[in-house]
Amino acid sequence: MTALSFFVAGTDTEIGKTFVSCALLHGFARANLRAAAMKPIASGAAVRDGALHNEDADQLDAAANVALPPEIRTPFMMREPIAPHIAAAREGIALDIGRIVDAHRVASTRADIVVVEGVGGFRVPLDDAHDTADLAVALGLPVVLVVGVRLGCISHALLTVEAIASRGLRLAGWVANRVDPDMLYPDENIATLTKRIDAPLLGVIPHLAHRDAARAADHLDARLLLDTLHLKD
């Protein structure tokens, strides 16, 4: 049986894609599913115990209950914490989408569900001709959008939803992540997006003093996402 899988995109960088991905992984584990995670492209890595480590990838490993080999979980890892196409060019690395598709095929044989986290926003370049939207298309996965709830999030979210649709991809759901605890009228902003996004709101994660993905999972409806993923296009 082929694993369920989806691509986690964000309205921007640093809005909680990894945090939400980890929270969903905890939710899938609570549903007695074998859950694996991929971070196919990661920039910002350091050597530890003789191997390159990326913080986001390590967090995904900790939240998943199925461990993937590093070369499958993260086929491309660059050292500098900068835009991936710039980091890759500086290290002489070609970000080959086909290699990621092959890695995802392997991951899908080892778990019931595979969470694939993108890098940066939805249209971050990978090289002169491709971006992360092209990666999502090549993988052929429905998308879960993480919206960082802060000033400006409405336009960013709706533009990203349009970009997802323009690539022929299905938006399986979205998550409102309260990244700015001081934002005025966050509930009203979320309500506005709920009216305009034609996909289920999977949950609202409050701003947590400590980024505890297991606690964040309490605010997400992983079963709703599973039901959505089972729906036919």
Rank of each mutant, 00 (worst) to 15 (best):
T2E: 13
L4T: 04
S5N: 02
F6V: 04
F6D: 02
F7E: 02
A9T: 10
A9S: 14
T13D: 06
E14A: 14
I15M: 08
I15V: 15
F19I: 13
C22A: 15
C22W: 07
H26V: 11
F28P: 06
A31K: 09
L33A: 09
A35S: 11
A37K: 02
I41N: 07
V47C: 00
R48P: 00
G50A: 05
A51P: 00
H53R: 11
N54P: 11
E55N: 03
D56L: 05
D56N: 05
A57T: 15
D58A: 13
A64C: 06
A64I: 01
A64D: 03
N65R: 08
A67F: 03
P69M: 03
I72P: 07
T74G: 09
T74S: 14
R79T: 13
H85R: 14
A87L: 07
A88D: 04
A88K: 10
A88P: 13
A89I: 09
I93W: 06
A94I: 09
A94Q: 02
A94D: 13
A94H: 14
I97N: 04
R99C: 05
I100C: 04
D102M: 02
R110C: 14
A111Q: 13
I113G: 08
I113R: 07
E117I: 05
G118A: 12
V119G: 04
G120M: 12
R123M: 15
P125T: 14
L126T: 07
H130P: 02
D134P: 03
D134Y: 06
L135H: 10
A136T: 02
L139W: 07
G140W: 03
L141K: 03
V143F: 08
V144T: 01
V144C: 04
R150K: 15
L151D: 07
L151S: 01
L151Y: 05
C153D: 07
L159F: 15
T160A: 11
A165I: 01
A165G: 03
A165H: 15
S166K: 14
L171Y: 01
A172I: 03
A172P: 00
V179N: 11
P181M: 10
M183V: 15
Y185Q: 12
I190W: 02
T192N: 08
T192K: 02
K195D: 15
R196C: 12
D198S: 04
A199E: 06
A199Q: 03
P200Q: 01
L202N: 05
G203P: 05
V204E: 11
I205L: 04
I205Y: 03
L208A: 06
A209H: 05
D212M: 05
R215P: 00
A216H: 08
L225C: 06
L225D: 09
K232T: 10
D233A: 10
